[in-house]
């Protein structure tokens, strides 16, 4: 690998202009916790790294009663420690808190986590459960996409970092009362990839569930929504623990994890899915109260 230069645009426009100028030979660099190793190992090529760490707009954070906006270059450490994130979407704070180690969280970013497209990415699984969207900017314009739809396979994203930049992530705050939950199983509490993880969001009106989103990973090549389990919860009361258990059982049936030498057998991980989905649902309904 030969990196010729690392450039530091100060604005989004400058960043896009640099990507255009270097036509396919440049690539967006955020924390580099994934990209630098890929470059070293020859799994990715780029002569010019367009470092986005000095673009202030990408560190933006905003929250009102309708939505929360997170800049794509916020680090996992920043998101995990953010009081608003902890109180409004604890699943995201918990996901970010579980990435790698303190050293990785101090530099790894939300945008990098999305574009690296690992199905069990710890920030992305909660973002999908929260129905988050993001803004993608390139020389040909802007588009807003559901984060869920950006995944094309393991390590494959529809965002092309040699042309495109994720700038912001949007999360709508549901109209009713709602709660989120994240649970992760790993061989140890730090520096270990998840055996399985699950994130959920439950929305309720007058104690009755009106919407549920349940995501579990890695049980497919993309973060996986167990949609039958989700719809089984509609109309149920938030205190109905047996309904939560039944939904978790459906999630177990829907999930099809493969045998993995690193993560464990498919059968074992399938049965874990039930347990962690149930625990995540309980966390979420507790916030609805």
């Amino acid at each position: 690998m030969r990196i010729k230069q690392q450039l530091f645009p100060k604005t989004i426009e400058e960043c896009i202009a640099l990507l255009v100028e270097h036509e396919g030979k440049a690539r967006v660099l955020a924390g580099g916790t994934d990209l630098f190793l890929w470059l070293k190992e020859g799994k990715a090529q780029a002569e010019t790294l367009v470092d986005i760490s000095l673009i202030e707009e990408l560190k933006h954070f905003e929250s009102d009663d309708k939505r929360m906006i997170l800049g794509a270059a916020l680090t996992h450490a920043e998101v995990a420690a953010h009081e608003t994130v902890k109180s409004c979407f604890v699943a995201l704070a918990d996901g970010c808190r579980n990435v790698g180690s303190p050293q990785i969280r101090n530099i790894g970013t939300l945008g990098g986590n999305i574009v690296s497209a690992q199905p069990a990415a710890d920030a992305v699984v909660p973002l999908v459960a929260m129905n988050a969207k993001c803004m993608i900017i390139s020389a040909s314009g802007k588009r807003t996409e559901d984060i869920e739809n950006l995944f094309k396979g393991v390590g494959k994203s529809s965002v092309d970092p040699s042309r495109e930049l994720i700038t912001e992530i949007y999360v709508s705050k549901p109209a009713g009362r709602y709660g989120t939950g994240y649970v992760r199983m790993a061989p140890r509490d730090a520096m270990a990839l998840p055996v399985v993880n699950a994130a959920v969001m439950v929305v309720a009106r007058d104690g009755t569930i009106t919407e549920a989103r349940i995501v579990t990973s890695p049980v497919a090549v993309v973060p996986f929504r167990t949609k039958r389990a989700e719809s089984s919860l509609i109309g149920k009361h938030v205190d109905d623990l047996s309904a939560l258990g039944a939904a978790a059982q459906l999630a177990e049936r829907e999930a099809q994890p493969r045998d993995s030498k690193v993560r464990g057998s498919g059968e074992y991980r399938k049965s874990l899915v039930k347990d962690i989905v149930e625990r995540a649902l309980i966390k979420a309904v507790e916030q609805i109260g």
């Binding site: 580099g32 916790t33 630098f36 190793l37 790294l49 760490s53 180690s101 050293q103």
Partner: peptide, 25 residues
């Protein structure tokens, strides 16, 4: 590879793994 922490230094006061950071960062 960012796994062991032996290369940790403080960058603007925060611990980071200097082995997986491009120097220009």
């Amino acid at each position: 590879e960012g796994e062991c922490g032996a290369c940790t230094v403080l960058l603007d006061g925060l611990p980071v793994n200097s082995c997986i950071i491009p120097v220009m960062t």
